[in-house]
Nucleic acid binder design. Structure first.
Lengths: 214, 214
DNA sequence: AGGATAACCAAACGATCGTTTCATTTCGCA
DNA sequence: TGCGAAATGAAACGATCGTTTGGTTATCCT
């Protein structure tokens, strides 16, 4: 059997430990024993404990940002952009649940390394731009402060790591649709809930897909 | 000058350190030096490091729950209940910002001590009951899953600790009103945004106010 | 004034942590 | 088959952590 690369095992064990106990409260001993080796041997793969954290977190962080970048370059109506951005956010949280949870708990907020701060900022700005489009086009006339509305949406989405569990009774798609209806229903004023759930036509984009590290 | 009780200084220093660095990454040395004493001397006030965490967090956790309990016992319409619950949540986050941030980052989710889990659960259940009232009365007919809608609201509110800062340019009241409009606009279907911003009539309740630890 | 008690100093303890070092085993490949 | 590199074992290091201990100073009360 072509045993899966040891590196992946290490990253997964680290991610699981970081998620449940937090980065600072997780010892290299914990991770090493989870994959069945001595903690010193981990240094054949890493240079420091923080390397593990960044390795765990980089994949989904780049993926979720790239998807929003691609979406922003389309000329879909703001309503549909919000809908797709929400779905994309939920789905990445679903398929990379452990990694994304570690990111939100250990990177967003606490650690203020410029690399990650810039990514958070860009994601927020891109989403806010979509909301502003909707405001200027009159679709989102209920919004008085686009940034607050955007942060409300991001908050709902990121809080998923506190209660959603992949494989649970609630499916990611249902949750995403609920969120869309909730927020768009609040954003839209005139049109009486038309465009409720279009079939998802895949985004055709000229740029190559973001490479996934998973 | 009647110098403020040393205990309060300790708690505040601990809270600030826990918020910025996390509980596990904060040493008693950090806290001791912040109040100008030796770390061993802290044990005249505490029995363990975790005591500090619980002392920091207990006040606002009980206060926010008690306020929602009182509100739930009234017979206000669901719309108004949601509005007041949102305002109350934001205001406690505003006036006990550091303590509440520590709670959300260190207690909610991670530590699974039954005491705190029960409080989280009760808060969620109370809020969900309000949403269900609205669904049954027909006001919130857009909601297909009350729990998801409730968790979306809680997520937006709790995510405030990631971007809101007391004394910043955005006032807590404005944010609360924005959130209300956003969520109620999404929840309400028929009535065309009436009852937008009533003057806040204080809740008259027979029970004594929750004592504040601040 | 003086004694009890609270408040704090100062040092040390054992445990654990991240990391280093070097020896040993395992594996890919010519 | 054998050699070099990758992978892991095994032990130890220095630093730091939470906590304990015992002594010293300050404060309050009668």
């Amino acid at each position: 059997m072509p045993r899966p690369s040891r590196w992946n095992e290490i990253i997964e064990a680290a991610a699981e430990a970081f998620r449940t106990n937090g980065f600072a409260a997780t010892s290299l001993e914990d991770i090493a024993s989870a994959v069945g080796m001595w903690k010193g041997s981990l240094y054949h793969y890493i240079d420091s404990k923080e390397d593990l954290l960044f390795a765990v977190v980089r994949g989904p962080a780049e993926e979720i940002l790239n998807q929003l970048r691609e979406l922003s370059e389309t000329d879909l109506p703001p309503t549909e952009k919000i809908r797709r951005a929400t779905r994309s956010h939920v789905q990445i949280l679903n398929s990379n649940f452990v990694y994304a949870s570690v990111y939100l708990q250990e990177i967003a907020g606490r650690r203020k390394l410029p690399e990650w701060t810039a990514m958070d900022r860009e994601y927020l700005d891109l989403l806010e731009s979509i909301v502003k489009e909707g405001v200027e086009s009159g679709e989102f006339s209920a919004v008085t402060n686009p940034r607050v509305a955007t942060l409300a949406l991001i908050g709902s989405l990121n809080w998923l790591t506190h209660w959603y569990r992949p494989g649970g009774s609630l499916h990611a798609d249902e949750i995403a649709d609920q969120f869309c209806d909730l927020f768009l229903g609040g954003l839209i004023t005139r049109k009486t809930k038309a465009s409720r759930s279009q079939t998802i036509t895949p985004l055709k984009t000229t740029k190559p897909r973001a490479k996934s590290t998973a």
